[in-house]
Design a protein around this nucleic acid. Structure first.
Length: 775
DNA sequence: GCAAGGTC
């Protein structure tokens, strides 16, 4: 029998072929697409990998003009399927024609069902030939089992996913066009609205409001130190919200010289290992290491395609039975983790930890091969090591902790103390990313008297909640059911690229806030988390056969029509609010050439500051790189051009002239003449990644650069180095050649020469302060 | 040029 297998991705096609063919496969091309062939018993197999959805929904071309087509028209407009990978589809057409059986072997989830079915439908495959293989890991056991136990594709499940596609496109396109048109943001600077991105943005704006509106409350803590070693105990009524009450308590016990131990307890407990890695957990852990979810995802994908880790997009936190944990450890045995792997393999049995979620599409993320830090470098290695260490932790024994507790009578008042100590490291030995906070409490016994070393009352204030960072936002999105493991980091990326949010701790921009305000007021449920929850319910009903795709789509269209009408009726108010916010966040000031408006502009090659009268006036300035830039009303004292507020990591916020060539800037940033080209000036700059360095202003003609320390004030103007002619820079007391390879630096083995006299008083002070922070 | 969902 001739059998055609369709997988969701190229890697799955390779893995399945290897498993089913025992390694004897051939790779060829059909219609330009890669196809793997092999024989197995009587059967001839062809395996082809898709690239996820090879079809995308979109409106026909005649709806493309945003200004000419009223957005409402899109509500009931037809949506058509546009093929994104013609060669793959053509290959499937011709292979299916000559096959007796077509097996859909896409991921075992809702989207996988649709990806498979939409493909065979579009390829016009005879449906009586179509079968479905379902496996939750690409292991021999699972795949062999799935191919022995073929089932039928689930059309209702695919319908559920298709309903989502149709609804998301309609709502997204209609509302996106409306807000963009009404606020005059057409073309490259369009604004966007969507079922997932808008509620996510609202999480950020709501948190911002909470912080802005926060009123700190004072509270008081009564604490004391006791015994010879001075262990700390707290009053059992802490915290006190009323100073009178805490004062009264202090008056009662404040003079006590001795306290009596009322009770004392000590117990040992297991401290269980963390769960296996799902995408969300991996991304939040990476974020803690300073690798953003977007970057971490990219690195994890690279590691996956080169065979070092398993598929990185998964919600699963339970290892499937079919996965050999010992096998994984054995593979790590000849790596840099051989010692750790060996220790765990030496255990009698391996009982892995398990998380709360178990899914059918992929196993949790685990290492699939040994890598070496010589071959894999930088952040990629850090992600790999994170995956390995997490895996080791999940198969390692629990740690043991000793918990102690006591209560004290202090002049008639009750105090409590707790202590914890790690007795055996267990999994913590392999996964050092969760710190164990030890706190000491000596061994005591009831009735024992201990010395009161001191008693004090501390005044504190409640603090506002933290802003989200990308990691905590991803976690919150998962908790609320917003987006999927594969899209959440992308959605957050969208919020940044639309300039709705900024900064590492996400703060909304004025336009982000204005958009949420407008949509909350007139956009129906589009900023509500409940929108997704409702859609999920409907999808569930479609999958169960309780509702039809058409019914759900019609219902959604009617809702959208109402919302669109409401937005249209209030288009002026919505548009004005957003325009005002955009002005505030983009308007830099007057153009020095034509008197027009200078604005922050978006472009394909990055953002910049440009004149609104373009092309009549081409005045433009670069936007300070890798910084958060805010507008100000101020103008430069030297040249009267507008000023910017620049906020950078590791630097204090600074107001500076928009013109990098203004002497107010160059005095601060220029270090001296370029020794390489003799034309340019060596200037302090920031790389895309936010790293400070010195580079020649004649770039790209001259590529001279020097590394600079990331923190602290640096001044130039010390003249050229007598040895190498590179500028000499000063950092407060210290003065040295900027060129790391300069013999003057080698001679002192990196140590700077002592500067006899500081040039500027202010610079000395700042530099001292900054360098004092460094170890 | 719009969404969100796959994957590269």
């Amino acid at each position: 029998m001739k059998r055609l297998v369709i997988t969701e991705k190229a890697n799955a096609a390779r893995r399945i072929s290897t498993i089913l063919s025992d390694g004897k496969q051939e790779t060829g091309k059909v219609e330009g697409a890669t196809v793997i062939t092999f024989s197995r018993g009587e059967d001839e197999f062809s395996v082809i990998g898709l690239r996820g959805h090879i079809i995308e929904l979109d409106y026909p071309d005649e709806y493309n003009n945003w200004s000419k087509v009223p957005p409402e028209e899109l509500i009931y407009a037809p949506q058509e399927k546009k093929v994104k990978a013609e060669s793959i589809l053509a290959a499937i057409r011709s292979l299916a024609e000559e096959s007796d059986q077509v097996i859909i072997a896409t991921d075992y989830d809702r989207e996988g069902e649709l990806i498979g079915l939409e493909t065979v439908r579009l390829a016009a495959v005879d449906m009586s030939k179509v079968r479905r293989a379902r496996f939750s890991a690409l292991t021999k056991v699972e795949v062999e089992g799935a191919f022995q136990d073929l089932t039928s594709p689930d059309e209702r499940l695919a319908d559920a996913a298709e309903a989502r596609q149709i609804i998301d496109l309609a709502w997204g396109a209609v509302l996106t066009r409306m807000v963009s048109l009404y606020s005059g943001q057409v073309g490259r600077n369009f604004l966007s609205v969507g079922r997932v991105q808008s509620p996510t943005l609202r999480l950020v704006t709501d948190r911002h409001r909470e912080i802005e509106d926060f009123v700190p409350q004072p509270y008081w803590l009564i604490k004391g130190r006791f015994g010879e070693q001075g262990f700390e105990a707290e009053h059992s009524d802490n915290p006190f919200w009323d100073k009178g009450a805490s004062d009264a308590k202090m008056a009662v016990c404040g003079d006590a010289r001795e306290a009596e131990v009322l009770d004392y307890s000590m117990e040992e407990k297991d401290d269980y290992p963390p769960s296996p890695f799902s995408t969300t957990i991996l991304l939040t852990e990476a974020n803690r290491l300073g690798i953003s979810p977007g970057a971490a995802m990219k690195l994890a994908e690279d590691l996956y395609t080169s065979g070092y880790i398993s598929y990185p997009r998964t919600d699963n936190t339970v290892y499937p039975k079919s996965l050999s944990l010992k096998g994984v450890l054995n593979r790590l045995a000849d790596s840099e983790f051989s010692k750790e792997a060996g220790e765990i393999l030496a255990q009698e049995s391996i009982r892995p930890s398990r998380g709360k979620r178990m899914t059918t599409d992929h196993p949790p993320i685990y290492p699939t091969a040994a890598a070496s830090s010589k071959k894999i470098k930088g952040d990629k290695w850090r992600i790999y090591e994170l995956v390995v260490r997490r895996f080791l932790a999940t198969v390692a024994p629990a740690a043991r902790v000793e918990l102690r507790g006591c209560s004290l009578d202090v002049g008639g008042e009750r105090f409590e103390a707790k202590g914890q100590r790690l007795i055996s490291e267990g999994w913590r030995r392999y996964y050092p990313h969760y710190r164990f906070e030890e706190s000491h409490l000596p061994e005591l016994e009831a009735g024992q008297k201990v010395e009161v070393k001191d008693l004090s009352m501390e005044e504190h204030e409640t603090r506002p909640p933290y802003r989200y960072n990308q990691g905590s936002l991803i976690q919150e999105m998962e908790r609320l059911g917003l987006g999927t493991k594969s899209t959440r980091h992308d959605i957050i990326g969208k919020l940044y690229s639309r300039n709705y949010v900024q900064g590492k701790s996400l703060a909304p921009t004025p336009s982000g806030e204005a958009l949420v305000r407008g949509m909350r007021k007139y956009g129906g449920q589009i900023t509500d988390v409940g929108m997704t929850a409702r859609l999920e319910e409907d999808m569930e009903k479609i999958a169960l056969g309780e509702k039809s795709l058409d019914y759900v789509v019609n219902e959604s269209q009617e809702m959208l029509a109402e919302v669109a009408e409401e937005i249209k009726a209030n288009s002026k108010e919505i548009g004005e609010e957003i325009r005002k916010a955009l002005h505030e966040q983009q308007h830099i000031g007057r153009c020095p050439d034509c008197g027009g408006d200078l604005n922050i502009k978006r472009s394909r090659r990055g953002n910049f500051i440009g004149c609104e009268s373009y092309p009549d006036c081409a005045k433009a300035y670069p936007l300070p790189r890798s910084a958060m830039v805010q507008t100000t009303e101020a103008v430069c004292e030297v040249c009267s051009k507008p000023m910017l507020r620049v906020i950078r990591r590791a630097q204090p916020p600074a107001e500076q002239c928009v013109d990098p060539e203004c002497s107010s800037n160059t005095e601060r940033t220029d270090l001296g003449d370029c020794p390489k080209c003799g034309e340019g000036t060596v200037r302090m700059m920031f790389s895309r990644a936010g790293k400070r360095f010195a580079g020649c202003t004649a770039w790209p003609e001259c590529d001279q650069t020097y590394p600079l320390p990331p923190r602290g004030r640096i001044d130039g103007g010390e003249g050229p180095c007598p040895e190498c002619a590179a500028p000499v820079i000063s950092m407060g007391e210290r003065s040295q050649c900027v060129n790391m390879e300069c013999p003057t630096r080698a001679k002192n083995s990196g140590k700077a020469t002592k500067k006899p006299s500081a040039k500027k008083g202010a610079s000395k002070k700042t530099a001292k302060k900054a360098s004092a922070k460094k170890p």
